[in-house]
Design a binder for these strands. Structure first.
Lengths: 339, 339
DNA sequence: TTGAAAGCGCTAACAG
DNA sequence: CTGTTAGCGCTTTCAA
C-alpha cells in the first residue's frame, strides 16, 4: 500500500484534534468555518480517505448497501446496480452484490451475509423481493430494505414501483390511435403480478375506446421467447388474425416477430407488434420493437435514496413510503398504421 | 440488530481465550483437535459470524474483491459477477462492484475506492482492463489485480483469456464441414483486439481447407447490430453472395439475420449465419443463432481464484500467470448444409 | 498448544 | 466550538 494516511496525520497537519477532523469529514455542525477549511486543505494535501472498516467498526454505519438478486435478466440487474451506485456514490456508500440461488434456501443464504457485513440497507429485486422468508430475516436482523416492483404484500415495506397498468393502457391506446381495433394480446407468466396489471391496462384501454376484447385473440404466454412464438402461431396462422399484437414483454414480442417473418407478414404494414420492457433484444431485430421502457436505473436510485435518507419505515400510522415512477413509451418501427 | 454475538461470547462458551477462537476461525495450525471442536460447536450454537470490519481493520485482509467494469454488455457483466462470487463465497469473500465511467477520468475514480475500501484484489473486464492509467493506480496502491481478456500488454499482469483464434477457426471449420466454401466474414471493431484474432482464425481455417478468402466477401463492422445489418446488405444484395456469413459477434449476426429476412433468404437453407459470444439475443431470433460461447463465468471464477490464491505475481523470472480457458461451439439452427 | 496485551482507524460520549 | 477518553471486534505480536 502506498498511502497509509490516517486521521491522525490530517489532524497533525491541520493543527486540530482527530475529533475535529472527524467532524468535518462527517459534515457535522459546530465547526468554525476557518477550521473546516484548514482541515479540508490538509485532507486534500495528504490525499486522505477515511478507512471504511474503521468507520463502520466504530460507528453505526457500514457505508455498504446490498443488492440481492436472483433475476434472470442481466440487463435488469446491471441497470439496478448502475442506478443504485449513482445515488450511493454521492454519499460515499458502496454497493455489495449478492446473487441468490432461489432454488435453494434463500433465507439461509441471506442470514450469514447480514451478520458478517452489517449493511446499512438492502435493495431487493423481483423475484426475491417477494420471498417472505428473506423479508423475515431482514426484519429480524433489523436491516432496512426497499423492494423494487414487489408483487405481494405491498404494504409490508418501502418500495419503488412503476405503473404497469397505465403503461399497458397507453401502449394499447397508441395502437388504437394508429387505427387498430382488433388488437391481440399475449399475457405474461400468471404468477407474476405484472402480468395481471398489464392485461388490466390493455383491457381497460380497449373498453374505453369502445373495442371488444376478443377472447380468442388473447393468449397465455410465460414471458419466454418460445411461449410468445407459440402464442403468435395460434394468433396469426388463420384468416381472422388481429392487425396488431401487444405482448406483455419483449421476449414474447420477439417471438411474434419471428412468426410474422415466417408467415411473410410485413411488420408493421400488415401486423404491428408491441412489447414491454425495452430489453436489449428490442433493438437487435428488424424492424426495431416498439415497447415500454421501465426506468430501472431511476427506480434503483430512488430505492437507494430511500435507504440513505432513512425513510424506509412507515411514518405515523401510514404505510411505508412507496415511490411510483414514470415509464416511457418507446415508439420504434414495429408499430404503424394498417396497410 | 438481533444478534450481537462477538468472539468473546464464543470464547466464554467454549472456555478458551478469544485468540484461540480466532485461530480456529482462521484455520490456523497449533490448536488441539479437542479444543477446535469445542470452539466450532460454540460458534454453531451461538450462530456466530465474525464481523468483517473488525477483521479487516485488525488484520491484513478486507475480505472484499472488487469488480471494475465499464462494459456495455449487461450479460457479460452479470456473468462475471456470478462467476467471481461463486469462487469468493468459498472463502468468505464478498464482491464489491464499481462501474466506471470511461468517458471521464477513470483513474481518478479508481483511486479513492482503493483508499477507502482496502480491497484484497480487483478483477478488471474489457475495456477497462486495457486502460493503462487504471493499471498504474492499482500498481501504485499495491492492489493485486487480474485482467479478463486483455488486449494489450499481456505480460503486464495476471490474466484469464479465451482462445479467440481457435474459436473462430473452429466455427469456420464447422461451416466448411457443412459444405460451404464461400463464407463471408464481418469483422469487428478495429480497436478491439478480439476483432483481429477472430479474423485471423477465420482466415486460417479458410486457407487450411483450401478455400480462398474473397476480399469482397469480407466486410468491416463495428460490433453493432446496425453495422452488421449494413455489412449484410452489401454482402447479400447481389447475385454472387456467399452461402454463409460468419459475423464477429452476435449483434452483427442478428443484423445479418434481419437482412436475410428482408431479402427472403431462408436461414439456413439459403444462407447460414454464425455469430460469436452467445448473447441472450442469440436465442430470441428464429432460427436461433449458431455461435461461440465464451466461458465468462468460469473465466471470472478463475480470476477470483488467482486473486484468492495470491498468485498474481510473476514467479521467478517468468511472466505473470495467465489462464487460457476453453470456449464452446454452440450449434443451433442458423447454420446448416446448403440447399 | 494457549493466552494477555496492544493496537488497527475511526466514531461516540462527554467534558471543557 | 473543540478536545479527551473510551471503546467497536477482531488480529497480531510476544510470552508462557
Amino acid at each position: 500500500m502506498s498511502s497509509k494516511v490516517t486521521i491522525h496525520e490530517v489532524a497533525r497537519l491541520s493543527g486540530v484534534s482527530i475529533k475535529t477532523v472527524s467532524r468535518v469529514l462527517n459534515r457535522e455542525p459546530n465547526v468554525k468555518n476557518d477550521t473546516r477549511v484548514r482541515v479540508q486543505e490538509a485532507v486534500a494535501a495528504l490525499n486522505y480517505r477515511p478507512n471504511i472498516s474503521a468507520r463502520s467498526l466504530a460507528g453505526s454505519k457500514a457505508y455498504l448497501i446490498g443488492v440481492f438478486f436472483d433475476n434472470p435478466s442481466p440487463a435488469y440487474v446491471t441497470d439496478v446496480q448502475l442506478g443504485a451506485i449513482a445515488r450511493c456514490r454521492e454519499e460515499g456508500y458502496h454497493l455489495i452484490v449478492e446473487p441468490l440461488d432461489s432454488t435453494g434456501d434463500v433465507a439461509a443464504q441471506v442470514e450469514p451475509m447480514l451478520h458478517t457485513l452489517r449493511m446499512d440497507g438492502v435493495i431487493l429485486t423481483p423475484p426475491v423481493c417477494d420471498n417472505a422468508a428473506v423479508l423475515d430475516v431482514l426484519e429480524a436482523e433489523g436491516v432496512p430494505y426497499v423492494r423494487l416492483s414487489p408483487d405481494q404484500d405491498l404494504g409490508r415495506s418501502a418500495s419503488v414501483r412503476m405503473d404497469d397498468v397505465r403503461a399497458a393502457y397507453e401502449m394499447t391506446a397508441h395502437l388504437i390511435s394508429l387505427g387498430h381495433t382488433d388488437i391481440g394480446f399475449i399475457k405474461g407468466h400468471p404468477e407474476h403480478g405484472a402480468s395481471h396489471l398489464r392485461y388490466e391496462g390493455y383491457a381497460a384501454a380497449m373498453k374505453e375506446h369502445g373495442h371488444a376484447v376478443r377472447e380468442d385473440h388473447v393468449e397465455q404466454g410465460w414471458f419466454s421467447f418460445r411461449s410468445g412464438f407459440e402464442a403468435a402461431e395460434r394468433l396469426l396462422d388463420r384468416p381472422d388474425r388481429p392487425t396488431a399484437i401487444f405482448a406483455s414483454n419483449d421476449d414474447m414480442a420477439l417471438g411474434v416477430m419471428a412468426v410474422a417473418n415466417r408467415l411473410r407478414l410485413e411488420v408493421p404494414q400488415t401486423l404491428s407488434v408491441a412489447g414491454f420492457d425495452d430489453t436489449p433484444g428490442a433493438k437487435v431485430v428488424w424492424p426495431q420493437l416498439t415497447t415500454v421502457r421501465q426506468p430501472i436505473q431511476a427506480m434503483a436510485a430512488a430505492a437507494a435514496d430511500l435507504l440513505l435518507g432513512g425513510a424506509t419505515q412507515a411514518e405515523g400510522d401510514g404505510a411505508p413510503p412507496s415511490r411510483l415512477l414514470d415509464f416511457e413509451l418507446v415508439v420504434r418501427e414495429s408499430t404503424g398504421p394498417i396497410g
